[in-house]
Amino acid sequence: MSEAVVPHTTEKRAAAAPGWFRRALDSDLFYSFRRSKITMIAAGVTLLFFLLAIFASVLSVQNPFDPAQLQLMNSRISPIWTADGQSPFLLGTDEQGRDVLSAILYGLRISLLVGVLGVVLSGAIGILLGLTAGYFGGAVDGLIMRIADVQLSFPAILIALLINGIAKSVFGNKLDEMSMLAVLVFAIGLSFWVQYARTVRGSVLVEKNKDYVAAAQLIGLPAPVIMLRHVLPNTTGPILVIATINLALAIITEATLSFLGSGMPDTMPSLGTLIRIGNGYLFAGEWWIVAFPGIALAALILSINLLGDWLRDALNPKLR
């Protein structure tokens, strides 16, 4: 019967490597990662986008938002492989002579910044409210989870638009770029906290009645601190999955708000703003002004979504 079990090749290869490395190679997470070529590509593309955003100023031929560097004679140049293409404008230029590729790189930076900050904020709000709801229970729990229920039935984009409108109303219609960025982060943070709160609350409720909490209280340790040390590791996986999927959602939300004209202004555009601007030139046949930011945005979201899908499946074997 010994031949009934054919060990998997990963194990064989891993057997030679030492310690933690061997464990990592043999882990289910790594196994499923290695097995999925698409996931590997998605991870690569996501990393690439982050690097492009970080090094935007080094990689672009001009700072597209410094009017001094723009020349009107360079306006509306089509991409370099078309008949009217001109070096160094790889993806062409827009109405004001802005290099489309440089605009994308700088826009990517804004999109990712808003997305990441929005996810961090919503995570912080969600984890805090989830801990509060789970720990205190009773009326506090009831109130927080009721709000969560109601909010979950409304699309995030609607909530984000409302928050945006209120912010404009309170602070006046013309906000400068950095304040607008803050408003967007805030709107996204308030739109996406519910899932974190639910996950954390559930975990707190499970841990709350365990003996070690009572034991810790007996020897005079504060229960919240002890619980935190158990709750957070337990929820790391789910929170990571939510955060990854929400990063894609946050970037979509920001892009949508900017496209609708309620997001980043033309003076400091995100990918969504670039698409809104480019959309105006579509009928004139200048497709490249909208197409390339669109492709960049779609590829970015698609890769993050693929990563999120893989992470969810890999961390939740029941779904496989």
């Binding site: 894609a248 979509i252 892009a255 949508t256 496209f259 609708l260 969504g272 698409i275 959309n279 579509l282 909208v290 669109g294 945005l297 779609a298 979201i301 698609l302 979504n305 693929l306 899908d309």
Partner: peptide, 16 residues
């Protein structure tokens, strides 16, 4: 997957 990843407005623009 594309339906989830492509923002609505991009799909609209593409169709137009």
């Amino acid at each position: 997957l594309i339906g989830i990843s492509l923002p609505t407005f991009l799909i609209g623009i593409l169709m137009i």
